[in-house]
């Protein structure tokens, strides 16, 4: 079982990203579970969301304390201790940033903000970061993420977000 923790700010779509990832994993024929860190949602406040992916049925219900991956949608959160809390030596960080943050763990950095501004005209990076995550982790197929977006977004938004996620996927190294 692989555990993924998303970090973002209220309004950035961390919860949607986690649920889309779970839906994509389901389309890939895997078991998945996604849920927010239940709380009182406020725009701009740090939020967390969780996703588990497994070949076997997932019954564990607790929050994720020691993730295999973190996905950080907003690099202004990086100073918070909760971002790196519980990370293992071999955990992997996937971060939306222009800079090169120094983490002990293997880190994938991508400037999803610039790409989202260019393609969506808005600083909403949750879908783009799924493309980055798909490349960095190899856990879900990019076609399933595209399909999950198509099935869950209104048509016009679906089209541009599917393009965005594919572009982010292809540009991630």
């Amino acid at each position: 079982m692989i555990e993924i923790r998303f970090h973002g700010r209220g309004g950035q779509g961390a919860v949607t990203a986690a649920s889309l990832l779970a839906k994509a994993a389901g389309l890939d024929g895997k078991y998945a579970q996604a849920f927010p860190a239940f709380g009182v949602e406020r725009r701009g406040a740090p939020v967390r969301a969780f996703c588990r992916i497994s070949e076997r049925k997932i019954t564990l219900r607790s929050q994720i304390y020691s993730p295999d991956f973190i996905v950080v949608l907003d690099d202004t959160l990086l100073g918070l201790p909760e971002i790196t809390e519980g990370l293992k030596k071999d955990s992997v960080a996937v971060i939306n940033t222009k800079s090169r943050p120094q983490l002990k763990q293997k880190t994938f950095c991508y400037d999803a903000t610039s790409l989202a501004l260019e393609m969506l005209g808005k600083d909403i990076v949750n879908t783009a970061m799924l493309g980055v995550f798909a490349k960095a982790s190899g856990l879900v197929s990019i076609s399933s993420i595209e399909k999950a977006i198509e099935e869950n977004f209104p048509p016009r938004l679906a089209e541009v977000n599917a393009k965005l996620v594919r572009t982010a996927y292809e540009r991630t190294e």
Binding site: A32, Q33, F38, K57
Partner: peptide, 10 residues
Amino acid sequence: GFVVSHTYEN
């Protein structure tokens, strides 16, 4: 509540 109601699963 939340643990089942707001959790995505197969």
